[in-house]
Nucleic acid binder design. Structure first.
Length: 373
DNA sequence: TCTGGGGTCCTAGGACCC
DNA sequence: TCTGGGGTCCTAGGACCC
């Protein structure tokens, strides 16, 4: 006796992708009445007149119309809009709003995977592919948090995210890709709209005469493997067809923790470099302790005036979460690899090979000590 | 247009081992 | 003496994401 075949909508799992619109600016607007209606170009960034190496985090529509966009140097933004209002980023504030948003999402889904400060992928199996419940969620976010989100609903996270981008032009800011329609949805989009295709890959694809996702999907696998390697070639083919078998996870597993800083003016001053390294080691150690993790590897990052950037790392004998240990290792790497007197633009500290503190305690029970025997 | 800061993943090449 | 063929681990750099 066979079970009746499940309908497509029962078989397919549904993923709702949530992406906050202009998140940092929206939060600032909530905190500063009048900001949303201010006609001036507004740029979330340190003021380039006091922080010459600042870059634009985000900008309002008036600023965008003048050509200002994310990641642009703030000095350039000032040149484009001499009357622009520069608002320094307030990351703690954005994190507080992010936590409230994620809490609300968790109250509305059995599984929430946070992908960045303002994005999350939600298990949406309970609701299927009708837009109604997503529209209702969007209204709840607006009412309870005060921000606008764009929503993409699809059978897998990759297509759901791409649908959330498309939703930014849709009236309700919700876009649904029904199961089976994935390939047709992605086909007309430019290759750059695929996650993982950045400027470099886009240029290489264009060199092969591939401009759209559909054109990519039409190429034989062998050609993609030859041009892009096993891993990325295979990914490109699957993604170009709207295929993605990744699963959602609510638990974040940290692989590395880092802190870095670009100086306002390049420096070769040992005191300044040492102070910065020490404060970064303390910051990284504090985060390790907060996450109850130990690090088995310490790395430094140096960027010279030429923008030449190097990273150097070392393994630790014993995993640690102590600022002193991290500082010592970072200083040893500095002594070994920095050419004294050579001015530095950026310095950074990173820890890796992270493991839970509890796992390390377990392991040491079975580790033979040098005194033993 | 002179290029932030926080991450993840992949790859090439060398060391080392059998 | 011109020279193998795996496998694994590690390092450094780079592409990419927000």
């Amino acid at each position: 006796m066979r079970e009746p075949a499940p309908s497509v909508s029962e078989l397919a799992t549904a993923c709702l992708y949530v992406d906050a619109d202009r998140f940092f600016f929206s939060v600032e607007a909530l905190e500063r009445p009048g900001l949303a209606d201010d006609p001036r170009p507004i740029v979330i960034s340190h003021d380039p007149r006091t922080a010459p190496r600042a870059v634009v985090t985000t900008a309002n529509d008036a600023a965008r119309q003048l050509g200002i966009g994310s990641a642009m140097s703030s000095a350039t933004a000032l040149r484009l809009a001499p009357n622009a209002l520069f608002l320094p980023p307030r990351h703690e504030l954005y994190h507080r709003y992010s936590e409230r948003l994620m809490a609300l999402l968790r109250a509305n889904s059995s599984l929430v995977q946070q992908n960045s400060i303002d994005e999350a992928a939600l298990r949406w199996d309970e609701h299927g592919f009708e837009p109604g419940p997503a529209i209702a969620l969007r209204a709840r976010v607006r009412d309870q948090i005060g921000i606008s989100v764009s929503l993409g609903l699809a059978a897998n996270p990759l297509v759901a995210k791409m649908a959330s981008e498309r939703a930014k032009g849709a009236p309700e800011r919700v876009f649904v890709v029904r199961p089976g329609e994935e390939a047709a949805f992605v086909a007309p989009l430019p290759v750059r709209s695929l996650i993982g295709v950045g400027p470099k890959a886009e240029a290489r694809l264009r060199g092969l005469g591939i401009e759209t996702v559909g054109a990519l999907a039409a190429r034989p696998l062998a050609e993609l493997l030859g041009a892009f390697g096993q891993s990325y070639g295979r990914y490109l083919q699957r993604a170009s067809r709207g295929e993605d078998d990744s699963t959602l996870s609510a638990e974040r597993v940290w692989k590395s923790i880092s802190a870095e800083r670009t100086f306002g003016v390049d420096t070769a001053d040992r005191r300044a470099l040492w102070d910065e390294l020490r404060s970064q080691a303390a910051e990284v150690a504090g985060r390790l302790q907060g996450e109850e993790l130990l690090a088995g590897e310490v790395a430094i990052k140096l960027r010279y005036a030429s923008f030449e950037t190097l990273t150097r790392q070392m393994r630790l004998q014993v995993p640690t979460d102590a600022a002193g240990d991290i500082e010592l290792a970072a200083a040893a790497l500095m002594r070994r690899y920095w050419e004294p007197g050579r001015p530095i633009r950026l310095i950074g500290v990173r820890v890796g090979r992270l493991e839970p503190r509890s796992a390390a305690a377990q392991l040491s029970l079975f580790e033979p000590t040098s005194e033993a025997g």
